[in-house]
Simulated scan of single mutants.
Amino acid sequence: MNSQSELDRINRVAWNSSDAERVFMLDKTYSDPGERAAFAWLAQRCAGEPLLDIGIGTGRTIPLMTAISDDYTGVDYTQKLLDLAKARFPDRDLRHMDARDMSALPSDHYGLTQFSWNGIDCVDYDDRVKILEEMYRVVRPGGYVLFSSHNRGGPGYGENIWQLLPKFTFNPLKLGWRTLRSARRFQLGTLNYVRNAKLNHDYGGYAVNTAAAHNFGIVIVYTTLREQRRQLAQVGLQCDAVFDSSVGNLITDDVEPSDAWWFHFIAHKPLAACRFD
């Protein structure tokens, strides 16, 4: 099995875990200030338009998207999480679908297509391009795409298992509780890290690396601003705005280094880009 299919297999196992179900079912609205800022930027521009929500998990983004428009379709490739979303939002159009192949959906149709919570980072580089090409295809000319992606230069890149150790305190009761709580996480996290780290590789503009989430149970892509802007241009999308996840600031085009954990990219499909394939 090659490293690309192994990355996909590892992440699919994580999304079907009880830890993923627990995390995705937390009572949460916006994932971070950057996502809030990105939705505010798009709200008036996409009001009333058909919306496509990719990687919905258990449905966190459904209320956020339907506040913009009631014409809504949500998709996810993990049936377990999708079933939870359907139970929470039984009247919504929610479909089992992989973002790399959304051929069941119409071309040039949606006013906004979004992929939240860095979901696009969980496939290899070539499949990442396929997802962006599919987002380009289904969005209407003049319509927008929104997605988030981990920062190659941010604090999340290079996380290691030592952070799973309990934080020291002089209070013996708290220290004992923290030690007990972290014992299982450290054991599982170490096993996952050692097993998954073989896929780590730095390609310059982007890197593949095991991530701390889900007890180091996922392997993801980290990108630079320059590389992601180049990739958007490659598939025909024009980048409009990038927001910093940490504080929600707009990152200007002349900025390259950033200490954000991840970025929220907004791009649009040019009006003259209607495809007839």
Score class of each variant (00 low, 15 high):
P166K: 05
T66K: 09
F216D: 01
A197Q: 13
N215K: 09
D259P: 02
T73L: 07
N2M: 06
M135D: 02
I266Y: 09
S107E: 11
Q228L: 13
P106H: 07
T179V: 14
D240T: 05
Y206R: 05
D98I: 09
A211E: 11
E227C: 04
K86I: 08
G153C: 07
T224G: 15
A99I: 09
N2C: 08
A260T: 14
D259C: 06
P155D: 03
T190Y: 14
R181I: 08
A20V: 04
M65W: 12
K269M: 03
Q44V: 08
P63L: 12
G236C: 13
G74M: 03
D127T: 03
I131R: 02
P90Y: 10
Q238T: 09
T73W: 02
I161V: 14
G176I: 09
R128I: 04
R178K: 14
P33F: 12
A104P: 02
W162G: 02
V221D: 12
A99K: 10
Y222L: 07
G154V: 01
D121W: 11
C46L: 13
S245Y: 10
K130I: 08
F276M: 09
M97D: 01
W41L: 10
D254M: 11
V129L: 15
K130M: 13
R22W: 12
Y144M: 06
S17C: 04
